[in-house]
Design a protein around this nucleic acid. Structure first.
Length: 180
DNA sequence: ACAAAGATCCGT
DNA sequence: CGGATCTTTGTA
């Protein structure tokens, strides 16, 4: 297993995105058990100029972690009931993040956090050092790109930027076996 | 202090 | 297609 480290996440989100799709998200539970899930869908949010990015409204208590360096977890509650999981990328003071939208066995950003029991207590967690949540290098996958979901408020340009990555034929994916 | 809106999901 | 549900944020 190769755990993705801070050098990986401190790159520009446009470089991290294509490398993170197809990677393995690992959740370690309190009893020591681990569950592994292939990342099949994600979206990129990039900088204060990106009107779909929460950081475009400046640094607030909610978004402050996005202004830190890459590798930290940004979670927040939407619609009063769903926690969404993001990983901050890039350098400090250059707010960017990847939203995890789907796994091979669980589609939907709000559903997968429920399945993995990820809530507000993960805010600011260092994904490169955490003992309960991390990423590992995965197999190569092919993916399609398209506009991000649910950001119609962001204006003509930012709502149509193709920053949603979706694994092609993700139903056929299986977790890599040991020593493959 | 108040009102509005939201990177969603579920059932009809 | 509408309701759920509540935090965050802007405005006064």
């Amino acid at each position: 297993m190769t755990r993705l480290n801070s050098d990986f996440f401190r790159r520009d989100v446009l470089a991290v995105g294509p490398d993170l799709i197809g990677s393995i998200l690992v959740r370690k539970w309190g009893d020591g058990a681990e569950s592994r899930h292939i990342v099949t869908e994600l979206e990129l949010y990039r900088g204060v100029e990106d009107l779909a990015c929460h950081a475009s409204k400046g640094k607030t208590p909610r978004t402050s972690v996005m202004f830190e360096e890459g590798g930290l977890v940004y979670v927040y509650l939407v619609y009063g009931m769903h926690w969404l999981l993001n990983i901050v990328t890039g350098e400090k003071d250059n707010p960017q993040a990847v939203l995890i939208r789907g796994l091979h066995d669980c589609s939907g950003p709000g559903r997968l956090t429920k399945m993995l029991n990820i809530k507000g207590d993960f805010y600011g967690e260092d994904i490169t050092a955490s003992s309960r949540l991390w990423f590992e290098k995965g197999e190569k996958v092919t993916f399609e790109v398209g506009p991000r979901i649910g950001v119609d408020y962001a204006g003509e340009y930012w709502r149509s930027v193709p920053w949603r990555y979706l694994v092609t034929n993700s139903e056929a994916l299986t977790l890599p076996r040991k020593n493959s």
